[in-house]
Simulated assay, not measured.
Amino acid sequence: MSEPRYAHQSVSYLHFIFVLGGIGVDKQISQSVERYNSMFNQWEDMAPMPTAVLHPAVAACDQRIYVFGGEDAMQNPVRLIQVYHISRNLWSRLETRTVKNVCAPAAVIEDKIYIIGGEFRFFPDKTNKLS
């Protein structure tokens, strides 16, 4: 990769490997997107994600990469679906109350995306006490 990072997500589509977000050398959540072109053995920068997130579910199908949820720098769940159109190098986003996943894998099966499991964040308050 041209930009060192960790805690990123990656997904393959056709002869590309896309690397999305993560934490960069400045220890900040990155919006950057790079792709590796296996036909030409080279990395190239792509349009950045509209919203930087960590640990989202990511899947690719039908010329698009879907980024579901994740968390922000304060470890709050992000209720957002970000969609990257591969051939246009453009992003769109959709805020939604139904997405609240962190660290969940995603899979494409027969043109449908399935998000499986993930991490549940529990923050105790006055009504929810741990015993």
Rank of each mutant, 00 (worst) to 15 (best):
M1V: 11
M1A: 15
P4V: 07
R5Y: 03
A7V: 06
H8A: 11
H8M: 09
S10V: 02
S10P: 02
V11Q: 05
Y13A: 03
Y13G: 03
L14E: 15
F18S: 03
V19I: 14
V19H: 01
L20V: 08
G21I: 02
G22E: 00
I23E: 00
G24V: 02
K27Y: 11
Q28E: 11
I29P: 04
S30L: 01
S30Q: 03
S32H: 09
E34Q: 13
E34G: 04
R35P: 06
F40A: 10
F40G: 14
N41Y: 13
Q42Y: 03
E44C: 07
A47Q: 12
P50A: 03
T51A: 03
T51H: 14
A52S: 13
P56V: 11
A59L: 09
A60H: 12
C61Y: 10
D62Y: 02
D62K: 15
R64M: 11
R64I: 00
I65P: 01
I65F: 08
G69I: 04
G69M: 06
G70F: 09
E71R: 12
D72L: 06
Q75N: 11
Q75P: 01
N76C: 10
N76I: 05
R79P: 01
V83I: 14
Y84M: 03
H85Q: 13
I86T: 03
L90P: 01
W91Y: 10
S92C: 08
R93M: 10
R93I: 00
L94M: 11
L94E: 12
E95Q: 15
T96A: 05
T96C: 08
C103V: 00
A104D: 04
P105T: 08
A106C: 09
A106P: 05
V108I: 10
V108C: 12
I109N: 04
I109G: 10
K112V: 07
E119N: 13
E119D: 08
F120Q: 15
R121E: 01
F122S: 13
F123V: 15
P124A: 09
K126D: 13
T127K: 14
K129N: 13
S131E: 09
